[in-house]
Amino acid sequence: MRIFVLGAGLMGKEVTRDLIRNPNVEQVVVGDLDISRAEQVCMQLQDNRLQAVYMDTADESNFINFIKDFDVVINATVYTLNKAVAKMAIQAGVHGVDLGGNVNDLAKEILALDQEAKQNGTTYITELGVAPGLTNILVGHGAKTFDELQSIHLRVGGIPKEPEPPLEYNQVYSMDGIIYQYEGKSTIYRNGQQQEIPTLSEVEDIYFERFGPLEAFHTAGGTSTLPYTFPTIKNLDYKTIRYPGHAKKIKLLSELHLLRDDYYVELDGQMIRPRDVLAKVLEPILDLGDKEDVVLVRVILEGIVAGETVSREYELLAEFDREHKVTAMARATAYSISVVAQMIGSGLIHQKGVFAPEQIVPGDVHIDEMAKRGVHIKEKSLINN
């Protein structure tokens, strides 16, 4: 199995670390626009199967020719490259996966490449982060156990183990992605009707083992491809988990237009976007640094089984890896996409086309593989009277 990892950032590094644990992986090539970052990953992980290369996805012909010899391409770069990389992988006849990016229209555009992927004999799976991604896999796994799936409720958060002011939050992925999910509308379903409701709204209390009270509130993008996969779903919502008071503080920033993507002001003869300034200001303030984080996931499914109303709940608590100094978010995300890439490379996933995770990833195998990596997912079922 030969795998090309595009992107030598935190996720790319941890994906690579996981891949080389598998003796059936013959080679892993790490490509980045900054080759020094790719070389550093290879140097730190110290394995003779690793190779670093300079790679610019803007040079389409070179990229397509280069990846033709690989079994799977793992796109661990920013979401803005997802569609371009998917198209090039499919054109090259190479299987691929990406981390998604909480952007619903982008997922639809990639799914629209399905026919071309079938014609080229390739498998491509998009939206393989934590949420969307791991959550979708759990939904797809649980959905098979219902005669009629009626409701999907997702609660997800990457938070510091110990909260600190001013926002009781530390950045565990891109600032652009964080701001995106806070601004705009959240797509939900209630009583079979699609609704667009404000982000940062309908704050609820939520508790996890060793963590609580916490709060959960609507954010953008988390439902991802689920409405397309389950078009008859009655209730569907996604909320982000944070420490209490976080939503109120972010809502103030939103009301001041500091999160808007389309809002510009003139300053000293130049048009600037306050959102860009805010991101630059927040990055050093919210930097996780050497602090520890946790990832909390709860997926609740409700529906009918043998005439009875049943609920199934999947819960994950991933923690910081102290031995390797790896964040919980990187572990939960990188391990998940690496597991799926290896399923494709080994032939376990063999259907051709473009898929959302819930449509194709075998959830039982995924749960077992994540447990082998120290990320445990608990399941419990209840019969509702």
Rank of each mutant, 00 (worst) to 15 (best):
Q40I: 13
T225N: 09
V281I: 15
D368Q: 14
L111S: 09
T123C: 12
L382N: 11
A117Y: 01
G221C: 10
P357W: 03
V85K: 03
L113K: 10
K108N: 08
I188R: 00
M271H: 14
G363H: 13
E319G: 09
Q193C: 04
Q342P: 06
E116R: 13
E302A: 15
L301R: 05
R17H: 13
D56W: 13
H376G: 02
L253E: 06
I344K: 04
V78C: 01
I233C: 09
I35E: 14
D237P: 02
L252S: 03
N48R: 14
M88T: 02
G307T: 08
V339C: 08
L301K: 02
E116P: 03
V294P: 02
I377Y: 05
K108G: 05
H246D: 01
V375C: 04
P166D: 03
P165M: 03
A330I: 07
N22P: 03
F4N: 01
P362K: 12
A247S: 11
I367T: 10
V73A: 09
A306S: 15
H324Q: 14
L106N: 08
Q351C: 04
G140W: 04
Q91N: 13
G9M: 10
A330L: 06
G184K: 09
K378S: 15
G101T: 10
I360V: 15
V103Q: 11
L267Y: 07
D71R: 06
K380Y: 14
I233W: 03
L259G: 04
V5N: 05
F4T: 04
E379Q: 15
